[in-house]
Amino acid sequence: MMSLLSAEIAEQVKKELADLAGPVRLVMFTQEIECQYCAETRQLVEEISELSEQVTAEVYDLIGDSDQAERYGIDKIPAIAVIGAADYGVRFYGLPGGYEFASLLHAIKLVASAQPSLADETMAVLAELDKPVHIQVFVTPTCPY
């Protein structure tokens, strides 16, 4: 199968991920008969994992591996849970293409370092949280956020 990442992009990704602060697991969920985006998302995480010693890809079936889906709170596919020393609740749903690919690389570096670099005021508010918060950010590949 053709690579999703061109040699040039692969080289850039390799550089970006060269000094990761710790190991990162890309836990990907798909299904037996893969939708187009599922197949591409799986291929993408596999290709990324080959570009860094610190990054590993795990692929699960949403139905067949329902215990894993439950563990990571996955309810739709394609899904990627980006896991560092802990599961920080960082998820991607859908193929992270375009600008979202950059977001995925950022997320990998973020969970590796576990340093969110937020304002002190933000950290103070977050420290007070006593209930679960679920943030969903809807994006498209052409949206730079």
Partner: peptide, 11 residues
Amino acid sequence: VASPMVQADMV
């Protein structure tokens, strides 16, 4: 990442 209470999905 900053809070164990928060899950963030990019959809």
